[in-house]
């Protein structure tokens, strides 16, 4: 029980060296050893999803993973989303849609959506609803969370299209230039 291991974790781009018991969960390690208390624990048996973090970009329950399993993986927590006081588009969407009340489940939903939208940027509302059903929220009735994730997805899509159009226009212009 008291055997400890030296591990290296990479969390939000920062490397950490830790000496921990192998039975220590990733969630406890993040919260207690690294002081990253934004990751919350609502059930510790993998249902509520409040502890959801990104492991190599994919949402994972930090309560169901031992910290030692997270070695050499890229861990991202809610603390990585904002840029200083500047909220990310996803965080802003949550606030705009009143997708949080007590805020306890919120970091889990944010990381869930962050990982999902990176993988499925064109997700439909039904797919987003199914995603949101991965985690539990007791305050909002979920609709505002679905709204927020959908809104964020649509804005990112619009901004990508805008970017593509601009890039396309740029290419055309440079094409003309080359042709001329």
């Amino acid at each position: 029980m008291t055997d400890r291991q030296l591990i290296t974790l990479r969390v939000n781009g920062e490397p950490y060296e830790l000496v921990i018991e192998p039975r220590r969960t990733l969630a406890d390690t993040l919260r207690q050893d690294l002081g990253l208390t934004g990751t919350h624990l609502g059930c510790e048996h993998g249902i509520c999803g409040a502890c959801t973090v990104l492991v190599d970009g994919a949402p994972a329950r930090a309560c169901l993973m031992f910290a030692v399993q997270a070695e050499d993986r890229d861990i991202r927590t809610v603390e990585s989303l904002a840029d200083g006081d500047e909220l990310s588009d996803l965080q802003r969407a949550f606030s705009a849609h009143h997708a949080l009340q007590c805020g306890f489940c919120t970091p889990g939903f944010l990381m869930l959506a962050e990982g999902f939208l990176a993988e499925r940027p064109e997700a439909t509302r039904e797919e987003i609803r199914e995603l949101v059903s991965s985690n539990l929220c007791r305050c909002t009735g979920y609709q505002p969370i679905v709204d927020a994730v959908e809104d964020c997805a649509r804005r990112r899509q619009a901004s990508r299209r805008e970017h593509d159009r601009a890039a396309c226009g740029e290419a055309e212009r440079s094409g003309h230039a080359a042709g001329a």
């Binding site: 965080q91 606030s95 970091p107």
Partner: peptide, 21 residues
């Protein structure tokens, strides 16, 4: 009016009982 609670709760900077050390 936008909620004044939101920024800290969205960034993991809320302080719940288990966050106190």
């Amino acid at each position: 009016v936008p909620r004044r609670e939101d920024p800290r709760l969205l960034t993991g900077r809320g302080r719940f009982v288990d966050d106190i050390r």
